[in-house]
Design a protein around this nucleic acid. Structure first.
Lengths: 333, 333
DNA sequence: CTGTTAGCGCATTCAC
DNA sequence: GTGAATGCGCTAACAG
């Protein structure tokens, strides 16, 4: 492997000079520069970035911890991060936990070991141990999707999105609305979206039937099963009534629910209106197209990256950014 | 930042000894080890990986170059790579070209600069400049999705998958089959899948109507438009006939096509049978469920990672692996 | 404008 | 078992 030393010898200059032309720093006369560049060209020399890092204390690497790469949300966020960061000459070290919470902690250590300049954490939980660890490793970090005191974050306005979506249902005349949620340890998706729904119902003097509130996990089939439970529970209670609408906290859950509804011959939106969250691409092509909430995930990634960049360069930067959302009203409602 | 030197001083041993306990190498007496470990624990010392790399010439990082992270295919491949590699203590440096071919070359240089131990390239083309660059940088590399002489690769059996899928259509009685492809510079998806289709048609003495062979790009709407062209061209020719089936080279294209068909009131599969490639999750939940080809992308990622690992450790490893596929027959056919 | 010197944090001889 | 010495490839004072 050819090094800066070799180049220096071949060009009959000092290593410092080579370093100077490499980094365009300091003054180098035109002919010396030419000479050095020629040698570099000939040898195909490419400087070692980590040797440089050892000196400069900057790796120009940002670690991105995510729960799974297999969702559109993650994809878009990572795309956004990548676009923004690559412009600044940073690369991304991928840390995919595959939904394993323990790995989140491990990766935090690992990224510290790698001396990444910053970390972006696409979070699914806000447990104290995690928060503690984050503060312990002491690396600029911004969290996406969940907000925690003392940690920079970019979040979505889950609460108000849920409220507005619910209100839209109500305005359309729906009073009996079912809800498919997820565990509340996911504060953003599990807790806030549910709270938004409930608060808006109450604000409109509407009761919520406990049996129509189902909890699912993050996959399509789970949405199917939750929908089934809503309808079968309805038929076994004294009320014998059925909701006229259902809100699912993710598009995938909504897709699962739709699947069940279609199997039962329940027409959408005539017999049952439905909506999801996330604006995944496919929702536009469903039959009928699904009403959903667009959070502009890619933008979230960009914003987070920019926040991190500012933080890494000790510029002023707000602690918390809450991103806007956009209701995407389609035929399913 | 606390370093190995500090630890050594605090534990009243030499740096060498600290290094020994860190790497479990050489002999260290039990009490000295305890002492050192205690100091490490107290200080929260985490060794610098890149300083280590400078000495060992191993970064334990693998670069993954991909055209886009926004497709299920990529996701699954990356997931597979990640699972396999993390077991071996490697991390992934993400290089997302966002479908920009020039960036492919840039990233190759960049990864060289970062001194990654190996590279996995999810390729969309096999242009000579790219191949040349790959050989020039001289880093263990395995390509996924495309095969090139002299480069290790993991590919899918696109040709035979296309043939078998086509044969399945024919056996169901279809003779007039349309085809939605992509540009042939993508040898695997564009060229091989098309060739498989054509060869199988010919092998069964079936003619292919030129106007039913449409070329699209990689998005859903493009599938919609291609389908439209197939049907409108059909109605303007002297034949006045319409195909009874259509094969799209990706699931997304198929979804777009289905969208158009439904708008036109054409029933699937009664009036028009259809199939795609890729086995994306959603195909299972479409109405009707879409027949497709499962390439086991995650496995491809794993295999590629294992191949790369072997290559990096100078073990014997086959140059080219061709993965099996599986037809997923569903109601759309 | 250019070279000398020094050292980043670590692993690896080679002595003892 | 342990330590001293050395150098990986690079940048950053500091002279000149």
């Amino acid at each position: 492997m050819v090094t800066i030393k070799n180049i220096a010898e071949m060009a009959k200059v000092s290593r410092t000079t080579v370093s100077r032309v490499l980094n365009n720093s300091g003054y180098v006369s035109e002919d010396v520069r030419k000479r050095v560049e020629k040698v570099i060209e000939e040898t195909g020399y490419i400087p070692s970035h980590y040797a440089k890092s050892l000196r400069t204390k900057k790796t120009k690497i940002v670690g991105v911890i995510l729960p799974t790469i297999q969702t559109e949300t993650s994809n878009r966020i990572v795309t956004g991060i990548g676009k923004e960061l690559s412009q600044q000459g940073y690369e991304i070290l991928l840390a995919n936990t595959n939904l394993n919470k323990e790995k989140e902690m491990e990766y935090l250590e690992l990224l510290k070991e790698r001396r990444v300049d910053g970390i972006i954490l696409i979070a699914t939980n806000t447990e104290p141990v995690l928060v503690e660890k984050i503060k312990e490793i002491n690396i600029p970090l911004v969290m996406i999707g969940q907000a925690v005191d003392g940690i920079m974050s970019v979040t979505f306005d889950d609460y108000h999105a849920a409220r507005e979506l619910t209100l839209t249902f109500i305005k359309k005349g729906h009073q009996d609305i079912a809800f498919i949620g997820v565990d509340e340890t996911d504060r953003a998706v599990g807790y806030l979206r549910k709270k938004g729904f409930l608060d808006e119902m109450v604000a409109n003097q509407l009761k919520v039937n406990e049996e129509w509130m189902q909890k699912a996990i993050f996959d399509i089939d789970s949405g199917h099963d939750a929908m089934e439970k809503v309808l079968t529970s309805a038929s076994t209670t004294y009320k014998k009534s059925i909701p006229t609408a259902v809100i699912a906290v993710t598009d995938r859950l909504a897709i699962g629910a739709i699947n069940y509804l279609k199997k039962q011959g329940i027409r959408i939106p005539k017999d049952m209106a439905i909506a999801g969250f996330g604006a995944s691409e496919i929702t536009r092509y469903l039959d009928p197209p699904l009403t959903t909430v667009d959070y502009q995930n890619e933008k979230a990634g960009e914003v987070a990256a920019r926040q991190l960049y500012n933080r890494m360069h000790a510029q002023k930067c707000t602690e918390k950014v809450v991103l806007d959302y956009r209701l995407v009203l389609r035929k399913s409602l």
